[in-house]
Write a protein that binds this DNA or RNA. Structure first.
Lengths: 230, 230
DNA sequence: CAAGCTATTATGTCTATACATAATAAGTCA
DNA sequence: TGACTTATTATGTATAGACATAATAGCTTG
C-alpha cells in the first residue's frame, strides 16, 4: 500500500504530541488542513484522530476543534488472561489444586458486595494455582447458583472454576479492583507465607444483565507484578 | 441520525457475544452479510468490527473471517491521573509536602532499571501527597538531569515533580508496574504505618525516544484500591 | 442591552467504490 | 504424489461526496 494509512497519520500526530510540537492544551489543525498536509482524505485523518481521542490523547469537540489533552490522562491497559495461560506464557509449568468446594449461603459481606438478598444459594470454591510447583494464586470464589444453574453439576477437581465459567457463563459487566493487603490465615497457609505479610489481591465481580454471577478474590504472593507499557 | 451507526452495530455484536449467541471460537458472519442484516454499508460494519478486534473481543484474519476470541482476553483499562486530580476527584482536600530534594548519583539499582551507565547525574526527590491531611501517596523519584536539563532550576517545594514533569517533559514510552510490598522504613514513617506492613506500590519508568527520563516509586497505604469496570 | 435566532464551522458518520493484501482452495504440471 | 501456480475470498483501508450535529460567533429584535 503506497498511500498513507490512518495508522501512519496517527503515529505522526502522536509523535508531535509526545515531543510537544503541540503542547498540552494546544489546538491542533483541523481535519481538512491535516488531510492536505498528509496528502490523504479527511476520512483518513478523521480515523486517526478518532483513535487518539479514544485513547484520551486528544479531546475533540464539534466546531471547537481538537485539543491536546491538558492532563495527559494516559490510560493503562492491562490484559487479564486466564491464570493458566498467564503461567504458561511465562514458561512455567501450571498446576491446579482444589482446596474445597461446597454449597453454602454467602456471608453477608459477600451478598452485600453482589447486591443480592440474603438466603441465595451459592457454591463456594477455594483453590490454588501453581507455577513450577510454587503457589502462584490463591482463589476464593462464590458462584451464584441461580445465575448459572449448570454449575451444580461441575466437578471442580478437574477444571478450575474460572476456566469453567469463562467457557460456560456469559457475562456482560465486570468490576475489577486490586490492592495490597495482609495475608489472612487461609491465604497465608495456601501461599506459604506468614499471616499478615503483604499480598497482592485482585477482586472481581461479574454480572450478566445486572444479575450477579460470581465474586472472586485472587491472592498473589508479594513477588507478583502487574505490568503494562503505555 | 436515522441510519444505524457503527457504534450501534458494535453494541449489538458485543451483546450477541456476551450472551453467547456466538460462542467463543465461533466464526462470525462476514462483513457483507452483516451489512445486509443491519442495513448498513460494509465500511460501517467494518468500523464496528475493527473496534471489537482492537479490544480483543474478536480475532480477524483475512480470508479466514472473524472469530470470537477463544479466551476472552478481557482488557482492563485504568486511568492514571495526576495524584492531585485523583485526590480532588474523590472530594478530598489535596496537600503536598516536599520531604527532600537533592542532586545525587543514582544507586546501581536505579541506573540498572533505567538501563543507563553509572555516574549519570540525577535529582532525587522524595515527597508526600495528602488527602484530607492523611497520607495518600509517598513518592520517591529519580530524574535524569541530562534528559531534562531545565529541571535543575525547579523548586520542588512549590510544585510536585510529577506535575512539573507532565507539564514540561514530553515522554514517548512508559512502563508501569504495580505490586504489593512491605513498607520500608522511609515509606512507613512517611505514611504513618508500621515498617513491613503491606503497602500498594506503583512503579513507573518513562522515556523519550529511548532516553530514560525518570523512575518513580509511588507507595500507597493498604486502603488504596485501583478499580476498573470492563 | 439582553435574549433569542441564524449562519458558520469542525467534527461525526454513512455510503459507494476501488484497490490492496493475506490466506486459503483449486488447479496444474513435472 | 508433491510442489508450484493461480483463483477466490474476507478483510484492510483509502477516497470522494453527502448529510448530521454541536458549538460558537454574529446578528437581530424587543
Amino acid at each position: 500500500m503506497n498511500r498513507t494509512s490512518w495508522k501512519d497519520i496517527r503515529e505522526e500526530l502522536e509523535r508531535r504530541i509526545a515531543v510537544r510540537e503541540w503542547a498540552p492544551g494546544a489546538t491542533l489543525p483541523g481535519e481538512e488542513t491535516l488531510a492536505v498536509e498528509f496528502g490523504a482524505s479527511r476520512a483518513t485523518v478523521n480515523r486517526a484522530m478518532q483513535d487518539l481521542a479514544a485513547r484520551g490523547l486528544i479531546e475533540r469537540k464539534r466546531k471547537a476543534g481538537s485539543k491536546v489533552s491538558a492532563n495527559p490522562v494516559r490510560e493503562a491497559r492491562f490484559v487479564i488472561p486466564l491464570v493458566k495461560q498467564e503461567v504458561e506464557a511465562s514458561g512455567a509449568r501450571y498446576d491446579y489444586s482444589l482446596l474445597s468446594s461446597e454449597f453454602a449461603e454467602a456471608p453477608e459481606l459477600v451478598s452485600a458486595r453482589l447486591q443480592i438478598g440474603p438466603g441465595a444459594r451459592f457454591i463456594h470454591v477455594r483453590c490454588l494455582h501453581l507455577a513450577d510447583r510454587a503457589p502462584y494464586q490463591y482463589e476464593d470464589r462464590w458462584i451464584h447458583i441461580a445465575a448459572v444453574p449448570e454449575v451444580e453439576l461441575v466437578d471442580f477437581r478437574t477444571i478450575g472454576p474460572n476456566e469453567w465459567l469463562v467457557a460456560n457463563a456469559p457475562f456482560s459487566t465486570a468490576e475489577y479492583a486490586f490492592f495490597a493487603a495482609g495475608a489472612s490465615a487461609d491465604e497465608a497457609s495456601a501461599l506459604g507465607v506468614e499471616p499478615g505479610s503483604p499480598v497482592f489481591v485482585g477482586e472481581r465481580l461479574t454480572w450478566l444483565a445486572r444479575r450477579p454471577i460470581t465474586l472472586v478474590r485472587m491472592t498473589h504472593p508479594p513477588t507478583h507484578r502487574v505490568i503494562t507499557r503505555l
